[in-house]
């Protein structure tokens, strides 16, 4: 009885739903809400993060640290939260800036890797393989030393982090892009050639619109990974979440609370990000790379 009822109501509701969720691919992309809303939210958040987050020079607690005999003090732990958030925002900013470099640079690396000329593609591949299999920490030190060695060049720590993280994750992104470009159907390339499209039109109107949605989840995963690598930039002087923990520990001689709250704050930021990426992955029909 109830099953029949359900079926009846479903049948009654189905046409309405279809009308509501009508998919109109012919609309221009900038008039589609499902594209514009995420883009706008992203742009606003990005602008706020990059524009308004300033790295504090030092993290000073307002509260007296408890005495040395206590292993763990909840009061002090909660007191550290605002300071930790300041540091975390700087870390997020660094990760986003670095990833912005990676997304752009990675595409060109992927193009270089696909180049027909062997003396373009081989060195690109060698560089990608080399950067991929060496630690970011050492690379950050390398960029720092290189920056010091070149006179007249004066980069801020966060710019250095941007370069280091960007170059490292560009190699990862390039692999994702390469898989995405390869997944574009061969017939599409042939059709573009048959229609006599110029290379620029072929890439911007045919290949990239089909390749990039496939790789978005992979890029999202790399963004989360980059965010997880960003705190180590405290070695080059970025005042992020680990710098906060380090400085508070050095000033108050208490190490448990700062590091634990750094870890907790980190989880609070990275778990939703990973979840969002998984939702994206579920939404986009996506071939495993």
């Amino acid at each position: 009885m109830s099953a029949i009822d359900d079926a009846a109501t479903e049948a009654a509701e189905a046409p309405e739903e279809r009308e509501i969720e009508e998919y109109r691919p012919h609309r221009k992309w900038y008039r589609r809400a499902d594209i514009m809303v995420p883009v706008l939210v992203l742009v606003v958040v990005y602008a706020l993060l990059v524009g308004y987050v300033e790295s504090p020079n030092f993290f000073r607690t307002r509260m007296e640290a408890p005495g040395g005999l206590v292993n763990f003090d909840w009061m002090w732990f909660f007191h550290l939260i605002p300071l930790m958030l300041q540091g975390l925002l700087v870390t997020i900013k660094g990760a986003l800036l670095g990833f912005a470099v990676a997304v752009v640079l990675g595409f060109f690396l992927a193009l270089g890797r696909r180049a027909k000329l062997p003396f373009v593609s081989w060195p690109t591949m060698a560089v990608i393989e080399f950067i991929r299999s060496t630690p970011v920490l050492v690379q950050l030190f390398f960029w720092l030393a290189l920056e010091r060695a070149i006179p007249g060049l004066n980069l801020s720590p966060i710019a250095l982090l941007m370069v280091g993280l960007g170059v490292h994750y560009a190699t990862y992104c390039s692999e994702a892009y390469r898989a995405g470009i390869n997944s574009v159907d061969k017939g599409q390339w042939e059709a573009a050639t048959a229609l006599n499209l110029s290379p620029a039109t072929k890439w911007t109107r045919v290949v990239i619109p089909q390749a990039v949605p496939n790789v978005l989840p992979a890029l999202g995963n790399y963004l989360v990974a980059a965010f997880k690598d960003a705190p180590m930039a405290f070695v080059i002087g970025v005042h992020g979440v680990l710098f906060f923990a380090d400085q508070v520990a050095a000033e108050t001689f208490r190490v448990t609370e700062p590091y634990l709250i750094a870890g907790a704050g980190f989880l609070v930021a990275s778990l939703p990000a990973a979840w969002a990426v998984r939702q994206l992955e579920r939404k986009i029909a996506y071939e495993r790379i």
Binding site: N71, M232, L242, V255, T256, Y259, L260, A262, S270, A274
Partner: peptide
């Protein structure tokens, strides 16, 4: 979800205390 560097710090510095 957690960054390996923060995990290392928690493990090697905070946990023993």
């Amino acid at each position: 979800g957690i960054s390996s560097i923060i995990l290392i710090f928690i493990m090697a510095v905070a946990i023993p205390i």
